[in-house]
Structures are given as structure tokens and as C-alpha cells.
Amino acid sequence: MTDSKSARRSPGKRERLAAAAAQVLHEKGVEQTTLADIARVADVPVGNVYYYFKTKNELVGAAIDAHAQSLRSVIDALDELPTPQDRLKALLHGWIDQRELTARYGCPTGSLASELDKRDDGLAEAVAEVMRQLLDWAAQQFRAMGREEDSRELAIALVAAYQGISLLTNTFRAPELMAAEGQRLERWIDSLA
């Protein structure tokens, strides 16, 4: 009986640690984050972290997986909307809704990708895959709008605009920049239909 209770709790702690890692890495960056920081946010004793993750890099990998799962959940919800324009605009609105957080810490995935690119541990490729999934989904939306030939370029333009405005929003601590760029991108999407 104790074993089954333990088995049920284990995934919860691991998931909490992964989500906490994603949050703390976003707020503090990889180099400044300690396992104790993550354990505190996850409400897990720091000694228990090593039961689930042997190294900090494993925790960073779990944070990347958490980003991928979050993106998958967002995409699943967006895919319920009736038109590709609606889906792309809802993506923009999600980004705009996070503008205060972006002003403080930047884009969660983009910031992590930039930081991990400076390391030689293979984690940069994992976070690049998360970005690739977003690009692939956006390209699919543009194809559904009838933009077969330039769907990939349009997806890159959309994500690049978001990453760029995330950097500026964070640099100037100006959430209104994200809101204004979101409105411009919405008009751009309308012009492509």
C-alpha cells in the first residue's frame, strides 16, 4: 500500500520540479539558478531533487520538456478554433497577455535558447526543437490560409517578430511594446488572408 501511494506521488513531484525549473530558469537564468531555488519553488526538500534528477543539466532538460508540453497544450487549444487566422491571432493574444512577465524576464523559451546556445552540452538542440514545433505549427496555419509557397517564411517572420519584440519589451521593461506589436501582427495576418 505504501508503494502505490509513493508511486502516485512520484510523478507529481517530478512534474512540480520540472515546472519549477522552467519558472526559475526563466526568472534567474541557467547559471544563476541553484537546485535549492528549484526545490523551494516546487516545495520539495532539496535532497529529494537528486532522486528525480542527478544533475542540474537533467533539470534543465526537464524544464525544456515542460516548455514543449506547455506549447503542445497551447497548440491543442488553438487547434479548436475554427480558422487559421483565428488560431494565429489567439496565439498573438496569448503572447500579449504575458507581456508583463516578458517585460520582467523575456520570452521563456527564447531566453533559454539564447543562454543554452553558449554551452556545449546538447541542451541547445533540445530547446531548438521546441521552437521548431512552434514554427511548424505556424507554417501549417499559413498553408491553411492558402499561402502554400511562402508558409515557412511567414511562420519565421511571425516568430521572429515575437522574439524581437520580446527582447525589446524586456530590455526597455515596456509591456506596451508587446501590445503594439501584437496589434500590428494581427493586422498583418488579416492582410494575408
Results as ranks from 00 to 15, higher is better:
Glu148Phe: 00
His67Asn: 11
Glu153Val: 13
Gly94Lys: 10
Thr34Tyr: 09
Gln133Arg: 15
Ile189Ala: 05
Trp137Thr: 08
Gln141His: 11
Pro82Tyr: 04
Ala66Leu: 03
Gly94His: 14
Met178Leu: 06
Leu17Asp: 00
Thr33Asn: 07
Pro82Met: 02
Glu115Gly: 06
Met178Lys: 00
Leu123Glu: 10
Leu25Cys: 07
Gly12Asp: 04
Arg72Glu: 13
Leu177His: 09
Ser151His: 11
Thr169Gln: 00
Thr34Phe: 11
Leu112Gln: 08
Leu167Arg: 08
Glu58Val: 05
Leu135Ile: 11
Lys54Pro: 00
Thr171Gly: 03
Ala103Phe: 08
Val46Leu: 09
Leu158Gly: 00
Ala160Ser: 15
Met1Gln: 11
Ala90Ile: 10
Asp120Pro: 01
Ile64Glu: 03
Asp86Glu: 13
Ala113Lys: 15
Thr55Phe: 14
Ala174Pro: 00
Ser10Gln: 10
Tyr50Arg: 15
Met131His: 07
Leu123Tyr: 06
Leu167Lys: 13
Leu25Tyr: 04
Arg9Ile: 01
Glu27Ile: 06
Val46Ala: 14
Glu15Val: 10
Trp95Ser: 12
Leu134Ile: 09
Arg132Glu: 10
Gly122Thr: 06
Leu116Cys: 15
Asp3Leu: 15
Val30Trp: 06
Leu177Arg: 06
Val24Thr: 03
Met1Asn: 13
Thr102Ser: 02
Trp188Asp: 01
Gln23Asn: 01
Ile156Trp: 09
Tyr51Met: 07
Gly164Met: 06
Glu80Met: 12
